[in-house]
Simulated scan of single mutants.
Amino acid sequence: MEPAGNVLSAEARRKMMAGFRSKDTKPEMMVRRALHRLGYRFRLHRSDLPGKPDIVLPRHRTVILVHGCFWHQHAGCRDARMPRTRQEYWAEKFRRNSERDTAAAAALAALGWNVEVIWECEARKPGLNSRLLELMPQRKPDILLPHHDGPDDGLGPAPARVRPRDPRDF
Rank of each mutant, 00 (worst) to 15 (best):
Q73D: 00
Q73A: 04
H74T: 13
H74N: 08
G76S: 12
R78W: 10
D79L: 15
D79A: 15
A80R: 06
M82E: 11
P83C: 07
P83S: 07
P83D: 07
R84T: 13
R84A: 14
R84Q: 14
T85S: 13
T85F: 00
T85N: 04
T85V: 06
T85H: 08
E88I: 04
E88R: 14
Y89W: 15
Y89S: 11
Y89M: 10
A91N: 12
A91V: 09
A91F: 01
E92F: 00
K93S: 08
F94I: 11
F94V: 13
R95E: 11
R95H: 08
R95L: 10
R95Q: 08
R95C: 04
R96V: 14
R96C: 03
R96K: 15
N97P: 11
S98H: 14
S98I: 07
S98T: 15
E99N: 12
E99L: 14
E99K: 12
D101T: 04
T102L: 10
T102Q: 13
A103F: 05
A103S: 12
A104L: 08
A105T: 12
A106S: 14
A106I: 03
A106Q: 15
A106Y: 06
A107P: 14
A107N: 13
A107C: 10
L108P: 11
L108A: 07
A109W: 04
A110H: 08
L111F: 04
L111Y: 01
L111P: 09
L111K: 13
L111S: 09
G112C: 05
W113S: 03
W113E: 01
V115D: 05
V115W: 06
V115Q: 07
V117Y: 05
V117C: 09
I118A: 12
I118E: 02
I118Y: 03
W119R: 02
E120P: 08
E120G: 10
E120M: 08
C121G: 01
E122T: 06
E122D: 11
A123P: 00
A123T: 02
A123I: 04
R124E: 10
R124L: 06
R124P: 01
K125F: 00
K125C: 03
K125A: 15
K125M: 07
P126G: 03
P126M: 00
P126F: 00
G127K: 09
L128C: 05
N129G: 02
N129L: 01
N129P: 00
N129T: 01
S130R: 15
S130E: 11
S130L: 12
R131T: 12
R131A: 10
L132D: 06
L132S: 06
L132G: 05
L132W: 03
L132E: 05
L133M: 07
L133E: 04
L133P: 04
E134W: 05
M136E: 10
M136I: 15
Q138A: 07
Q138R: 07
